[in-house]
């Protein structure tokens, strides 16, 4: 009985492919984007190069993923000039913070459901 209920709970949160797809935030689920959002969650703002070094990414890789997050409204990107050198700063929006929170809850629920079995 307990086994069935745990399985049901899990299915409700992540189970079959048809329910999992809309619930799991694909945008954040991807590793690089998850790293970007996590790093920004503990820093008010990070410059492009800092983020790149911190996560050991290439320029192209970071800019592509950052743009996806920006398009979704999870990350705010401001471009300024320091003298002649352009400087790109990223910060997490409230929406992005909420998305990370939901993602964490989701992962926790999956673990909890298995642990309860």
């Amino acid at each position: 009985m307990a086994r069935a209920s745990a399985a049901e709970r899990l299915r409700s949160v992540a189970g079959g492919a048809e329910t999992a797809a809309p619930e799991l935030d694909r945008l954040i689920h991807e590793r690089v984007r998850l790293a970007i959002v996590s790093a920004l969650a503990v820093n008010e703002s990070l410059a492009f190069n800092e983020l790149k070094d911190m996560l050991s990414l290439t320029d192209g890789n970071l800019s592509v993923h950052a743009r996806k997050l920006e398009e979704a409204g999870y990350v705010q990107c401001t471009k300024t000039f320091e003298g002649r050198v352009p400087r790109t700063e990223f910060r997490l929006t409230d929406e992005g913070r909420g998305a990370l929170g939901r993602y964490l809850d989701h992962m926790e629920a999956i673990i909890q459901a298995v642990r309860d079995r």
Binding site: A7, L10, A14, H29, R31, L34, A35, S38, A39, L40, A41, V42, N43, L46, M54, L55, L104, H106, M107, E108, I110, I111, A113, V114, R117
Partner: peptide, 22 residues
């Protein structure tokens, strides 16, 4: 269920690690 659960654990560990490092 195990792989899903393990992946979730793995994801959480990854987030924590990244946050700590950042």
């Amino acid at each position: 269920l195990e792989p899903l659960h393990e992946r979730a654990m793995d994801n959480l560990a990854f987030i924590r690690q990244t946050m700590e490092r950042a």
